[in-house]
Design a binder for these strands. Structure first.
Lengths: 258, 258
DNA sequence: GCGACGCGTTCGAAAGATTCGAACGCGACC
DNA sequence: GGTCGCGTTCGAATCTTTCGAACGCGTCGC
């Protein structure tokens, strides 16, 4: 561990609280004893943290278990609303979903990850595991690869170094050089494809949302089952519609920039 | 301060972190110096907290300011998804919005408050200040009053004692006895009205969602401008539709209960 | 009706992390 | 070239967290 030796160590108390919250997110309704088993902190310590977090409405106690408080929803929605392209992006996502009938996602880049901001489902009954708020690696998403393609080399390399290229399916690109090639193709086209790279049998097109300086800050993807979303529909029709939506967003961003 | 003397004091370090986050929610993009002014903590202390929170993706640094991280969205959506009636409730809210064309809210009771979980807008262009995630006092909402009406006397009294009856408009009920009478009427009817009690010119009907034991755990409200939403439409038509939706939810809750 | 179990709660002492204030670095602006 | 704004670093003092053990209370089983 290199963090341990750093002179400006993090605030470990806060980190303990965070770890408790993370654990409760993963295991909703956990009890004090369960948390003690899982967390390598003294029972009484965890208890004090729980009391504090409860006092601050960050967690609630129900039916003999602890749960994340809905106050997180306030913080979360608040964070989302401040994403500069959220409002415009959402409108375009709704429009795309209606137009295509497919599942359309709006995502934001934050740190090394893509965060799912908003989804519109069209009328596809497709039930994926994706949920608003989730973070995903950039390399395993259509919109994510589109974002990677427009990052400067330095940041791209840093992200790959830190996060690696985790394999999700047989089609996931896990080789840095192969990814570099792919990103070049994406830059040529202006958009990215995802053919079963995150979920087997799920195809998608993605394009980046970029700020005034051209830095990618988010993206949109249109996805559907591989047996229907393929061929010209996937290669031409969807990208056309997608790019039109992205253009709209970019225009709006230019005008509304402070 | 009576908290200070309590033997089991809260974890003050965590509370400092929370206060920093609250401050950043209120004042997005704040700088270290701004936070120092506002928070009565040493600059270097706040700095260490910021680093820690940043390390944990709870906040991000952008354009020379600190912002809440999108990780909160993950926590928040996660918390919302665990509300037992959320899925069913959302479907019914969508249906009601489509049926009536009005603005429909799904709320949950958490602690002393109502939390806005989900909204469907129908086609009303009405732009209220309400947002998903926000907390409101129970006494100033239609759904909130409906919830209060079915709480046991003990909890009702405790909430009023702790929170009081804050006035929002001239029509807000701020007298405990008047509220008691109103709640009795609500119990007779099975639903509650809100006639400009939270926002001048905004009327609403609300009904409670109750668990197996009859304890209210949430609610639904249908609201619209007073000049249109009034008379028989408000008094009969909307309540009928609302109660039908609530019934649906209750039936679903019975079946899906563990 | 008695004992054991699960769960949350409380306590005091020991140790360890947080807090503080001051000083440093860096860039931008004038 | 000086100053302002902002983030960063440091070491010492102290205040708080942490720990483990014990307590209270309800519930289940016998």
């Amino acid at each position: 561990m290199d963090d341990t030796s750093r002179s400006n160590r993090p605030v470990t108390t806060t980190e303990s609280s965070i770890r408790i919250l993370e654990q409760l997110k993963q295991n909703p309704g956990g009890t004090l004893d369960e948390l003690t088993d899982e967390l390598d902190l003294a029972r009484s310590t965890i208890h004090r943290h729980l009391l504090t977090l409860e006092d601050n409405d960050l967690l609630v106690r129900e039916d003999g278990g602890f749960y994340l408080g809905l106050r997180f929803l306030d913080f979360g929605i608040s964070a989302r609303n401040r994403v500069p392209f959220f409002d415009v992006g959402r409108r375009q996502v709704d429009r795309l979903a209606e137009e295509t009938g497919e599942k359309v996602w709006l995502v934001a880049k934050e740190g090394d990850f893509s965060v799912h901001l908003y989804k519109a489902s069209g009328d596809s009954p497709l039930r994926t595991s994706a949920r608003v708020g989730q973070r995903r690696y950039l390399h395993q998403l259509a919109a994510g690869k589109a974002i990677l393609a427009y990052l400067d080399e330095e940041e791209f390399r840093a992200i790959i170094d830190r996060q690696g290229l985790l394999r999700m399916t047989d089609h996931t690109i896990t080789d840095a050089d192969a990814l570099r090639e792919e990103l070049e193709a994406i830059r040529d086209r202006g958009y990215a494809f995802n053919t079963g790279e995150s979920i087997e049998g799920l195809n998608a097109v993605g394009a980046p949302i970029r700020n005034d300086e051209g830095t990618p800050i988010g993206g949109i993807s249109i996805s559907g089952p591989a047996n229907r979303v393929k061929g010209d529909y996937l290669k031409d029709e969807l990208p056309d519609k997608l790019l039109a939506a992205i253009d709209e967003i970019h225009i709006n961003l230019r005008y509304s920039s402070t």
